[in-house]
């Protein structure tokens, strides 16, 4: 299911307008994205595929506000993310965007439960008395309640990625952005993570997933392929 980048959802939740990203390196400038225009509707499960260095991670970093475009505009839920300052982007991300990384990036000194509670604590969206209960509910959702009080290092890669997904859901964001979520997992774990994403889409979440695995990519409702910084 290939896409040319046009909107397939109900309404435009994510919009990129003529976005270009150039990295300045000692070896010279490198254009990671070149005039990308893209719309993603609410409730879509979008896979972004492409070869290494094609610009797919850059694309997701621009959507999450982790990186800034060199030119162009990025709107998420109507918010002009490209205009936000670093601190504003962090607050905005805390409430509107769940990010799942390839290497899980859980805080090693916190238990799984505490890792999930952390975004709630930072955003103050939920009363502190509800944090533990809500985090536990999310861990149950990802089938990790039995490991709630264990440190991340005690879990397998698949379980750590589930914990990272639970953390991404902590503040009930409408969008989950994930970069190679199965890149570090075995086939069985990868399958369970993708099922989890499918369930989340069924619950109304929008999933933006970068992957190099074409089989997994096909599980998404929409597939965007990038090559040399352009959507093809």
């Amino acid at each position: 299911m290939k896409s040319n980048g046009n909107n397939h959802g109900n309404h435009q939740l994510i919009e990129l307008k003529d976005v270009t990203k150039v990295y300045h390196t000692p070896a010279g400038d490198f254009t990671a994205l070149n005039g990308v225009t893209l719309s993603i509707g609410s409730g879509e499960f979008v896979s972004i595929v492409g070869k290494s260095g094609s610009g797919k991670t850059t694309l997701i970093n621009l959507v999450t506000g982790i990186d800034d475009p060199t030119s162009g505009e990025v709107y998420v839920g109507g918010t002009p993310v490209h205009t936000l300052k670093e601190g504003e982007k962090a607050s905005w991300r805390g409430s509107n965007m769940g990010v799942v990384f390839q290497f899980f990036q859980l805080l090693p000194t916190l238990t799984v439960l505490e890792n999930v509670m952390l975004p709630m604590d930072l955003s103050s969206r939920f009363p502190i008395s509800e944090h533990a209960e809500r985090a536990m509910a999310l861990l149950e959702l990802v089938d990790l309640a039995d490991h709630a009080h264990q440190l991340p290092s005690m879990l397998s890669g698949g379980l750590q990625q589930r914990a990272a997904i639970a953390r991404a859901l902590a503040n009930d964001p409408p969008i989950i952005a994930t970069d190679e979520p199965t890149g570090n997992l075995d086939t069985k774990s990868a399958e369970s993570v993708i099922k989890l994403f499918e369930n989340l889409v069924d619950q109304g979440k929008t999933i933006l997933m970068v992957t190099h695995d074409s089989d997994l990519a096909k599980r998404a409702s929409r597939l965007i392929e990038i090559a040399d910084g352009k959507i093809v």
């Binding site: 982790i66 670093e86 601190g87 805390g94 930072l122 953390r167």
Partner: peptide, 16 residues
Amino acid sequence: IKQIGILRSVGAVRSQ
């Protein structure tokens, strides 16, 4: 430093 990045990615502002 990476943990700082993670904190920021899950919504922590710099002052936090």
